[in-house]
Amino acid sequence: MSDALFRNEPVSSTPYVADGVSISLAAPLKRYSLRARTAEALETVLNVKVPQKIGATEGGIACLGPDEWLLRTPAEAAMPTGAGLPVAITDISERSICLVLEGPRAAELLMTGCPLDLDNFAVGRATRTIYETVEIIIIREGADRFHVEVWRSFAAWLWTAFTAAASH
């Protein structure tokens, strides 16, 4: 992609650091919505392992629903289109940005507005959920590290909400 034109991101590229948690914008990712009736149908097209269980992640692919997966990859790899096959592969790289919450208070910060019990949310798990009124996808990358995917137009609000909650 052109180097001549700059990317314009909805939140600051400077991490916000508070006591016990930092909030930062992840580097750009390629994202694809993968849809099919079964994980096997996608495995045939993509030639990679696709997790079966809702919430599971494997190789950058998170199973979000019975027929929905999210692939996130830093690579510029060519994706098959799935043309003519009973699958749907859609480029959603720019639909969302990813905020990284990191530190011993990361889960506590997320729980200020997310109603899930994150004490019982295993590392490696992913789910679509909500922070107050804004839909998000959370991926627990580590005990103290969450990726929070949020649609671009809501990102500024979420950043403000996170930084306010982290400062409390």
């Binding site: 009973p86 749907a88 859609t90 790289s93 720019e94 639909r95 969302s96 649609w151």
Partner: peptide, 12 residues
């Protein structure tokens, strides 16, 4: 029906 819908409002 073998068809899937994806919101791309914010992709573009």
């Amino acid at each position: 029906l073998d068809v899937w819908l994806t919101s791309t409002t914010e992709q573009y």
